[in-house]
Amino acid sequence: MNWTSILIATVSASIGPLAVANILAAQGLNIHYGYAGLFNFGQAGFMAVGAYGVAITCASSEAGGYGAPLWAGVCVAILAAVVLALLMGLPALRLRGDYLAIVTIATSEIIRLMLRSEAISDFAGGNSGVNGFANDFFAASWFTNGKRFEWGPFSYLGKDLWVMLIGWIVVAVFALVTFFLMRSPWGRVLRSVRENEDAARSLGKNAQAFKLQALVLGGVMGAGGGIMLALFQNLAVPDDYVTRTTFIAYAAVILGGAARVGGPVIGGVIWYTAFQFMLSLTDEAKRNDLLPESLAPNAALLPFVFLGIALMCLVIFRPQGIFGDRKEVELDAR
């Protein structure tokens, strides 16, 4: 077993581009689920809309795009997320919370399946998606894209470093937005709506409007995650936006602690650390024939099994996550 390579892979992944994209989407979910109490199980849909918004706007016309500059693509992506949030929210927020979960998970799957469909493949590229739209983005890089930058045993490609730099800046911006909004009277109303809509209404607060604003804000953050992921890969493919993507973002929120600004950030880093560790470990084990015969063909799934069990234990023994306040979690609405 080569423990050094396992460790290096693990540490590199913990703050890598995939973790960043996940953290951005998770901060959006933190607004939805943590602060507003909205069960959005379709964050992957917002990510997809963000990714394809940039991809289609910026890809060259031969690739079925519009060849617009990056800033225009980002604007289109954000606008698309806002429209999606309104489309889902206006009908579904009037219903009870669990209906929103159904509507959102269904919507995100509809989006993914539509993007895959042959009918619009001139436009969205079907199964293989859209690629080659991030050239502007990498042209602006401060690092030589193809060069490997090394710090002791750790190294990143220049293009990955550029994605990470921009990505972590956006993570910081989203965290600051969340922080400032949630300590404002706006955030106070939002938390009151999460706990008891009728109480908020009886004090003259338009609960509906606050939920809708939260859905839009968190959705735009989700689109931010999708944009980062697509730019990093220089590719937008439908199957990056399966429901599992949403659940991994949820895992980050719950690990770190819901309704805490730093929760999704730390949670996302921990998730990717643990995931990469398990992945490298099973890889190494397989290579050294240490896995039992019955497990070997499914080795790639083992990390999910272990992390699933770990997540269950966390929810049972530390329901508040890492940053949460246990007392607060256990206060029930009598």
Binding site: L181, S184, P185, W186, R188, V189, A200, L203, G204, Q213
Partner: peptide
């Protein structure tokens, strides 16, 4: 208690910042 007050400027989204 604070939540009860009406006409709060900070309850508007952009003013919250």
């Amino acid at each position: 208690m604070r939540l009860g007050a009406t006409g709060q400027r900070g309850e508007r989204f952009f003013a919250g910042f």
